[in-house]
């Protein structure tokens, strides 16, 4: 009843009542705005994860996590790290709501610490991919592609060797081995295992030379796997960085007080979203 009277049109000539000043949802504009913005983010990541699912379903081959050197423990730890950070940001928000600015600062610092830890573990995982040359467009998917990759690398080593008059014994050895390998690749038309064996013997005889050929593991579907992996986890990491920047603003604010509550609430909602995306990414990338 009270709602009906409040919404009744105001008769002409009478002063407009001061309450209610407006209708509609009883929440802050900013809070509704951030929820809608998160709606756009949901669509963004839905499209990305959707593309992963469609490509995976449509591919003739899709490598397993072990083949791609995915570290399950790293993903699991990162999940725990992000979930805990989401908990701390809620505690920080509650403390700020109670007016305890310094306690809020403490919990915010914990949140940011865990966020940085997440990025650190992510960077460790990425470095592993770089180390094994597991990068989009660089993994041979057939024996033929593996041959070309080793051949190109071998010729690169030959081109990098110093001029003949300054050759050390070691370099001469590398040159001979590389030449042997190159002619083996050109003439023998080896299958992948034979090629891997030849590369291994090259490495065995020249461990000290410091010039390594790339791994020639043939992984069908690996390039597409890596494309989606780097795109999705990379764009998630970009969102983590944006979240860190957002949460750092109240942390560094000299006048942190309850007036910052709406800002921190919006930033915390965003942080929960970043967390939520990871909840979907972890099983998609690490488990299934």
């Amino acid at each position: 009843m009270s709602a009906a009277t409040a919404h009744a049109p105001v008769p002409a000539g009478e002063p407009i009542p001061s309450t209610p000043s407006r209708m509609g949802l009883p929440i802050r504009n900013g809070k509704l705005g951030i929820w809608l913005f998160l709606g756009t983010e949901v669509m963004f990541f839905t499209a990305l994860i959707g593309s992963l699912i469609v490509l995976r379903g449509g591919s003739a081959a899709w490598p397993s996590q072990e083949t791609m050197h995915v570290k399950l423990w790293a993903g699991a730890v990162n999940t725990l790290v992000l979930l805990t950070s989401s908990y701390f940001v809620v505690v920080a928000l509650n403390k700020l709501g109670e007016g305890k600015a310094s306690a809020a600062r403490g919990y915010l610092s914990l949140t940011l610490l865990l966020a940085c830890l997440f990025l650190g573990i992510k960077a460790y995982e990425y470095s592993g991919k770089f180390e094994h040359d597991l990068l989009p467009g660089r993994v041979p998917e057939t024996a033929e592609m593996a041959r070309y990759k080793v051949l190109a690398a071998t010729e690169g080593i030959l081109a990098d060797l110093p001029p003949a008059d300054q050759e050390t014994v070691k370099d001469r050895g590398v040159r001979d081995a590389a030449n042997t390998l190159a002619s083996f690749i050109r003439n023998e038309n080896p299958e992948a295992p034979a090629l891997a064996g030849a590369v291994d013997s090259f490495h065995d005889s020249h461990t000290g030379a410091g010039r390594w050929l790339p791994e020639v593991e043939v992984i069908p579907g690996a390039n597409l796997w890596l494309s989606t992996y780097f795109l999705i986890t990379g764009l998630h990491a970009v969102h983590v960085i944006v979240g860190i920047l957002l949460l750092a603003i109240p942390l560094l604010a000299w006048n942190l007080s309850r007036a910052w509550f709406p800002f921190l609430e919006n930033a915390a909602l965003y942080w929960h979203f970043v967390d939520l995306v990871w909840i979907f990414l972890f099983p998609t990338v690490y488990l299934i």
Binding site: V10, R22, M23, L32, G33, L36, F37, T40
Partner: peptide, 17 residues
Amino acid sequence: GLNFIVTVHTMRPPGME
């Protein structure tokens, strides 16, 4: 779009159902 949705949800004057 975001601006308009929030405006329609929260900025209506009394009586604007």
